[in-house]
Simulated scan of single mutants.
Amino acid sequence: MTTPLTVALVTPLTGPDAAQGLAGLRGVTLWARDERLPLPWDEVSLTAYDAYPDSAAAMRAAVAAGPDALLGPYGHRAALAACASTDRVVFNTGAPSTRFVRQAFPNVVNIAAATSTWPRGVLAAVRAADRRARKVVLLASGDTAVEITSVTKAAAVAQSFEVASHVFPPGKAALAATRLPPGDILIVHAGPDDELAAANILLRRPWRAAAFSTAVSAQATASLGDLREQLLAPGSWMPESTQPTATGPTAREFTADFTALHGVAPTETAAWAYVTGLILGRAIRYCGGVQDASVLAAARGIDTTTLLGRFRLDEATGLQVGHQIPIVQWQAGASRTVWPRESARAPFAHPRLFTSRPGMASRTSPGTPTPTQPRTPPASRTLPTT
């Protein structure tokens, strides 16, 4: 006798995050259609619960229905409330945060690397190309300001940088930017409007490298003009990648299947939701059951690659450490992946060119070299990625 695997997805289907939640639902729907599980399961039966406006209530309703597996919501606040409301195992579909450490949430399976970890890649790329850079200046705002500050400081210590961090209230970016001290590397993590306001002030200074969390978007950075050149940012996934995987389809195959089923191209949120299903399926095949303790133990032992890269959980923290957030750099009007090296699509251009005032062409910093300005010709150096 066969039976369906019952899966509950708790995610916003209405409200301000509905677009992301619905994208996740589409991703899980595709996985449910294609997953092939061993007997006794002959299909995946998926039920979605609207996490808006009360994600904890939605999670309780999902748990009451007694599903075999639970997938958690998009959005940090929604996920924190939802996961805190149950002791069932929850696969963290759309809230990559260091707050979901095993010590605080022992039953959460983290699928993606925490969003706040992206400065690690920036600092690693800079250090690989530049041994002289010393001071990192961090400007942060929003719900994850404390988290991004903590992660950046830890990464800086590991790469022999010193950090000056500054947290500001949303909407006060321009004022905070004018008070920011000089340094070698600039990292800004805030909302799109605040980052744009800060960029128009800070990118006229001669930073050796500058990174903004929302700068991967062409629309968000279009008004910066030449100031955008050589900016770094946390990247997204690559839908056309044909890189082989150990679990599930390649990114290109997933993109084609998703588009054929839903009539729209997949977003990164949809891709992560789909990968959540892949990891759940692999854990069930490994342990041969759906009991929470067995599935959790199986997930903790998985080390594989999917269309979004490597999956591996840290034994001590339960955070995702296999996946690395790619770093992109704007080069000649296009964002190109430059880190990690094995995923790079272009060499990392360093040190950064900058524009000192509106209307001027990009150039390197003039004047006598200082300890943070090595004696090099006034043109960017391009280092190989291998």
Rank of each mutant, 00 (worst) to 15 (best):
R312L: 15
A316Y: 00
A346W: 04
A344M: 01
T304F: 05
V328P: 12
W339L: 00
A298M: 03
R336Q: 14
A316F: 00
Q329G: 10
T317N: 00
I325Q: 08
Q331E: 04
L319Y: 13
A298F: 07
T337W: 02
A299S: 15
T304D: 15
Q291W: 00
H350F: 14
G301S: 05
D292A: 07
A316G: 01
H350N: 06
L319C: 10
E342F: 10
S343E: 09
W339C: 00
A334L: 07
E342V: 06
R300A: 08
S335W: 04
Q329D: 13
H350D: 05
P340V: 02
F348V: 04
A293I: 06
L319M: 09
R310A: 15
A344Q: 06
G318S: 08
S294I: 00
F311Q: 08
V295R: 03
S294F: 00
L313R: 03
L307Q: 08
T317R: 00
A349M: 11
F348G: 10
R341Q: 08
I302S: 07
A316W: 00
R352L: 14
R310K: 13
Q331I: 13
G318P: 14
I302C: 14
A334T: 12
V338Y: 04
V338R: 10
V338G: 09
A299E: 05
G318M: 08
F311H: 13
H323E: 15
A349F: 08
V338M: 05
D292T: 01
V328E: 05
F354N: 09
T304V: 14
V295M: 14
L296M: 12
R341F: 02
G288E: 04
G289A: 13
A298E: 08
F354K: 04
G288A: 05
Q329S: 10
G318Y: 11
Q291I: 02
L296K: 01
H350I: 04
A316D: 13
G322A: 11
G322T: 11
I327F: 01
G318T: 05
Q331W: 06
I302F: 15
S294N: 06
V295Y: 07
R352G: 14
A297Y: 01
I302R: 12
S294R: 04
D303Y: 05
Q291D: 14
T337N: 11
E342Q: 12
G289V: 03
A344S: 13
R341D: 14
A349H: 12
Q329F: 11
F348N: 01
H323S: 08
S343C: 03
D314T: 01
A316P: 02
S335N: 11
R345W: 01
A346R: 04
A344Y: 03
R310Y: 03
T306W: 09
L296V: 07
G289D: 12
L319G: 11
I325A: 02
I325H: 01
S294E: 07
G309I: 06
Q331L: 11
Q320V: 09
A299P: 15
Q291K: 10
V338Q: 00
G301R: 05
V290N: 08
P351M: 04
L307P: 09
W330T: 15
V290R: 10
V328H: 14
G301I: 03
R312S: 12
T305L: 08
R341C: 03
Q324Y: 05
P347W: 02
R341K: 05
P340Y: 00
G289F: 02
D292C: 03
